[in-house]
Design a protein around this nucleic acid. Sequence first.
DNA 1: CGTGCGCTTGATAATGGTCAAGACGCGTGG
DNA 2: CCACGCGTCTTGACCATTATCAAGCGCACG
Lengths: 252, 252
Amino acid sequence: MSIHLDNIVEEGGFKSCAHDFQTNCGNCRLNAICLPLALESEDVEQLDDIIQRSKPIQKNQHLYREEDDFKSVYAVRSGTLKAYKTTDDGREQVTGFYFPGEILGMDGIANNTHASSAKALETAAICEIPFESLEKLSTLMPNLQRHFFQLMSREITEDQQLITLLSKNSADERIASLMLSISARNARRKLSATAFRLPMSRVDIGNYLGLTVETVSRVFSRMQKMDLLSVDNKEIEILDIQGLREMANLGG
Amino acid sequence: MSIHLDNIVEEGGFKSCAHDFQTNCGNCRLNAICLPLALESEDVEQLDDIIQRSKPIQKNQHLYREEDDFKSVYAVRSGTLKAYKTTDDGREQVTGFYFPGEILGMDGIANNTHASSAKALETAAICEIPFESLEKLSTLMPNLQRHFFQLMSREITEDQQLITLLSKNSADERIASLMLSISARNARRKLSATAFRLPMSRVDIGNYLGLTVETVSRVFSRMQKMDLLSVDNKEIEILDIQGLREMANLGG
DNA sequence: CGTGCGCTTGATAATGGTCAAGACGCGTGG
DNA sequence: CCACGCGTCTTGACCATTATCAAGCGCACG
């Protein structure tokens, strides 16, 4: 019933298309998210020079795998990815979902080896940022250096949020929080904060929030019964965002 | 029954004492942990110049508080600290324990505001590293820049480990993992891997691992009954490290 | 048109939380 | 030095939440 408008909606309406290799950081409409720094235009050009835009990766394809050599970090231009680790007994821990404008792969810097795998949840266009070049450029551009310190710090604070969520909150609260997070990230990209299509499966949500599929499904049913949202498979509509906030127990 | 030998054991036996303000990075016996980088001696001197060594902080004193302005990151010279966030409903999520040689405070970079509080679990000596100076120095010393990217990346991978632990592992597994982690960090500082004093309370352990005090206590009792370790209040002796590894379910 | 995967729903079980009581240990003050 | 009191830890009984097991539905894809 739903048509994939993602690519068009995401970038097509502005100056560039997500799959257009000519896109550069200067005209990318995501740069407010991806590069919220006071880079002079000449700086942006220099950054542009080191960024590689490759052909889109398909659903279920890997961007990198755990234990691959670390070479680059990646910015999402369109589509969504999940990062995940596989535990010794074969279960999957999703460590993050990455939407357009967001950057992933920074966990690989510590040991020059990716600490997690990254897989496309739908067709995705990616900017590859070779880390060695980025390091060199960072010594020349203090703004860029600061920006990457901040990006990594943000990843830390977000992981800490998730730690708190997992350790202190009920299934209802975890899922309400995730819905609000996705809603906010949509809003940041000027998309609807109340109606969207989940790019990930129920299993992925469970593996992110430390819950089983059954529990995820039951919570969605419950939320629907409470008229907090309407759920049609992956299509979500938030009907009562205030009620959802109360369920998430995050205050506000 | 146990005498606090920490300061003596920690640094006194080598060239410097933890509470000696004359200590510098070059002669600090923790520098293999704190600065595992190929810094030339002149580089170390430059780094030394920006580092501030203040008087020890006492048990229960704060190094910084959530929402304080972010100015510095900190290296632990002796003692132990916990970093924690307070949830909206007043509960405490411990996000990490920091032992000598480890660095904390990096979560404050993202928003120029500390995202967590840090409190001493026992008297602690700290090196303060003003972040602005560190940034400036990093543009001049690519090794130092890389080192800090790596430190932050390590913080990310450690948070992801904790996320996995919280979301996939039982109470037994969580506590066994923590004991093994403390054991390994002791070994790295040339202390006993099998006998140590826990610097944190049962409540702190619970708030770190997402468990109640009662559960923490029960798990310790169970482990003792299984002859995996002997517990005398905060004194821990690991009796069967292999058995503990099996309980932790981390393979090996 | 069938097969399979993803999702939902129900019944049951287990893990850990909650509440309560008591022990132990430590620091303070008499 | 001992007594008191509080905070921390332990243990038990009971309960709630979520996992597990099982079955069935429906859409997508071959």
